[in-house]
Structure formats: structure tokens, C-alpha cells
């Protein structure tokens, strides 16, 4: 089942020419590629045809200093036994990207729903972006790097005039 070195080089060549970006091998059986966010649906469709048919998950990383969100699509190929991670960066102020639900249907939608809830990223074409884990949540998306959860909890759930909770405010001062 192991993929030979020759097959691996051929795979990297095919992927590079299909995606129009340089594919970098990481450690064993790992490939990384960075593409333009406008091409994400197209790229996923192409690599799915090549054999990367299992969407492992979608991760989001909040690069606060750079002012951008990074989305990483982890795809596994049962045929080549290789993991391809497609990275793409979008603007942090108006985060929006096309949904890949045309390829992985409700599973992709659920992954996107989670990211929408925790990072506030909008997925165009996904009509099912309703809350997943958080119920009655009215604050900002909680996984953002500039969301100070300690302050938020203090403001929302503790009262200084409550004798039992006064101590939290004293510690802060």
C-alpha cells in the first residue's frame, strides 16, 4: 500500500499543474499548498477528481497581526494514502468565502457552520449557518484572538454589588 517515491513526485507534479500553485511536501505523506480564496471550490473539485475524496476537516486560524483569517482544508486520499492541506487566506474585516457544499454536501456544511459560529466567517452558498454548539449566545465569535473572554464573563455574568461575587472585582483591581 505504501506509495513509492516516484509516485509521490508524479502526484506533486500533477497537483501543482492542476492547481497552478507550488505543492510543498511536509513530513511523510503530507502535502501543503496555498491558493487564492476565489479558486477554492474549483480547486477542491479538481483534487477530488484526482483522488482526494475524504474531507477530514476544515480549520480556521485567526492571524490577528496580519489582519487575515487562514482556512485550511484537510483532504485525505484513500488511493495515494496522502494528506493534502489546502490553505487560503481571507480578509479579516469582511470574512467571506464560497461554500464547498456542492462537493461534500451536508458534512462540509456542518464544518462551515462550526467555523461560522466560532470565528464569524461567512460561507457564500451555505444556507444552513445556524448556531451549532452555543445556545443564546449574543457576544462576538468566541474563538477570535481579540475576544477577551475574561472581561466578557465579568461584564455579562458577575455583579460587583453581589457580596459573593465582589471578590472577583477586587482581584482584578
Amino acid at each position: 500500500m505504501a506509495v513509492t517515491e516516484q509516485e509521490q513526485t508524479n502526484l506533486v507534479k500533477t497537483l501543482s499543474s492542476e492547481l497552478g500553485a507550488s505543492v510543498n511536501p511536509g513530513r511523510e505523506r503530507r502535502l501543503w499548498v496555498e491558493i487564492n480564496p476565489a479558486n477554492i471550490v474549483d480547486a477542491c473539485m479538481k483534487v477530488q477528481k484526482i483522488g482526494f475524496e475524504h474531507l477530514s476537516t476544515i480549520s480556521a486560524v485567526d492571524w490577528l497581526e496580519e489582519g487575515r483569517f487562514e482556512l485550511v482544508y484537510h483532504l485525505w486520499s484513500y488511493q495515494y494514502n496522502t494528506l493534502l492541506s489546502i490553505k487560503t487566506k481571507i480578509d479579516r474585516k469582511k470574512p467571506s468565502i464560497s461554500s464547498i457544499n456542492s462537493i461534500w454536501d451536508t458534512y462540509a456544511e456542518t464544518c462551515e457552520r462550526e467555523i461560522h459560529e466560532l470565528f464569524g466567517i461567512d460561507f457564500k452558498g451555505n444556507k444552513n449557518l445556524i448556531p451549532l454548539f452555543l445556545e443564546d449566545w449574543e457576544g462576538p465569535p468566541p474563538f477570535l484572538k481579540d475576544f477577551n473572554w475574561r472581561e466578557f464573563t465579568m461584564k455579562e455574568h458577575y455583579k460587583e454589588d453581589n457580596p459573593r461575587e465582589k471578590v472577583y472585582f477586587e482581584v482584578k483591581k
Binding site: T57, S59, D62, T106
Partner: peptide
């Protein structure tokens, strides 16, 4: 760590597959 993402196996089994 700057960011950790965990993928649990039940995430796909219990939401999209179960609903289907």
C-alpha cells in the same frame, strides 16, 4: 500553541450521517 483544532470522529457520524 497558537491554535489547536480537534477533529472528533463522531462529528461527521452524529450530525450529517445521523440526520440522513
Amino acid at each position: 500553541p497558537y491554535r489547536v483544532k480537534i477533529r472528533g470522529p463522531s462529528f461527521s457520524h452524529m450530525i450529517p450521517i445521523l440526520e440522513r
